[in-house]
Design a binder for these strands. Structure first.
Lengths: 226, 226
DNA sequence: TCATAAAAAATTGTCGACAATATTGATACC
DNA sequence: GGTATCAATATTGTCGACAATTTTTTATGA
């Protein structure tokens, strides 16, 4: 299922040029260095990276399959536009998928995963005490949480869909609409309760809490946008 | 979001060679003419279609993004294997996603969609009366139903994920594990109830019924496999 | 006979060039 | 001045060839 992990592991010794281009461009699009909605010029980008158009095109196609680009025949590629509708769509899908991930994680309840989740939570707790109140809660912390829970679901399709296909778009929205800390301490408490439900093996509750958590996050964003 | 519709619309006058290859190969993989798990030889396939390897490779990459192929650097592409685990994973994701689609469809409740759903259902009813008892319920009928509901959700990401990314894998399993009619009349009644809930604007119920429907379908398959 | 290593063959990754199509700019016309 | 038509330009789609890597075959030794 080609799960690449969150941050491109540069470990892979034999990665193709196309893959490196893909990883680089993905970062630039997510962080907005290549602006949303802008047209991609194949010759220009190829020159910039000293690569052939062929290799670049392969990278572009992968970006398309991530939903970061849109390509039209004989016209070319554009970075996707960021829209309110698009963001809401994204959160609706996340609600469904991560809710399920939570349920599955609770039904599995592997010792390792439980341990990792607990450790992660206490790391976050310390961080929170330090920077109390403030947006301790770097997006990365939040991502950690969601990422690990999805992993614990053990459903490869679910993992791939969320971690490879959806999260980069989420990050793109966060970077570019600049919605940093998603509700600081409150989010932490919610995370905490979700993990408790998973530890208790209560899949139904875990799912419900996660869905509520994501819905709250979405509403929070909705408010900020007005 | 590049929604291609269920069956490739050959309308598009200017479709690229790569796209035609993609559509053809997708069919052959889904229907098992290219067997699951088999290795793809780029030179061989390119010769067969009188195409260059470049165009073929583009098609292969799209197939990879559908989850029908797995590619490894310097090694090549293989058709995915069909496994029990993979099938269950698929149904878990469908349960989450189509449940959400139902909820959204119920919350929208556009006149057009409701009309279409009703018409479709009565078409299926007639068909069922004709071939009573028998597996009237061609897979296609079932697909019709799920497909239309997803469309009615109006969530482009959800639509794309289900209709472009997941359904081809579902069809692949159906073709190759030969699980034709999913529970004939019973499925019809369930479909009927789901549409009623949507018409009533009861998103919560619609979601619940759809999830139960898919879970039942999954268990039905699980039993057949033993 | 089996295991290991080297050589040969085949396959994939990358590139630059040409053809087909779309976009831009210039020109003529109302 | 604005609009439509056509030429010029630039971009994308497709191809065949070469380089890098993997797989297969062959050769060698215990």
């Amino acid at each position: 299922m080609g799960l690449t992990g969150m941050n491109s592991p540069l470990r892979e010794p034999h990665q193709s040029l196309a893959e490196r281009l893909f990883l680089t461009l993905r970062g630039e699009i997510v962080e907005g260095h290549i602006p949303a909605g802008s047209k991609i010029s194949e010759p220009e980008l190829a020159r910039r990276f000293n690569a052939s158009r062929g290799s670049l095109r392969e990278a572009l196609m992968r970006l398309e399959s991530l939903g970061l680009l849109e390509r039209r025949v004989n016209v070319g590629a554009r970075v996707v536009e960021l829209s309110e509708r698009g963001l809401l769509d994204l959160y609706e899908v996340r609600e469904a998928l991560e809710g399920m991930a939570c349920r599955l994680a609770a039904e599995q309840r592997s010792e390792e995963d439980l341990l990792e989740l607990r450790q992660m939570l206490s790391r976050h707790e310390q961080q929170e005490e330090l920077q109390a109140g403030k947006a301790y809660f770097q997006p990365e912390g939040d991502f950690d949480f969601h990422f690990r829970i999805v992993q614990a679901s053990k459903n490869d399709l679910l993992i791939d869909t969320l971690c490879n296909r959806l999260y980069y778009r989420v990050r793109m929205y966060r970077y570019q609409l600049g919605m940093a800390s998603p509700r600081a301490q409150r989010a932490f408490r919610e995370h905490s309760h979700i993990i408790e439900a998973i530890e208790a093996g209560d899949g139904e509750l875990a799912e419900l809490l996660m869905r509520r958590h994501i819905r709250a996050s979405r509403q929070n964003i909705e408010n900020k946008l007005r």
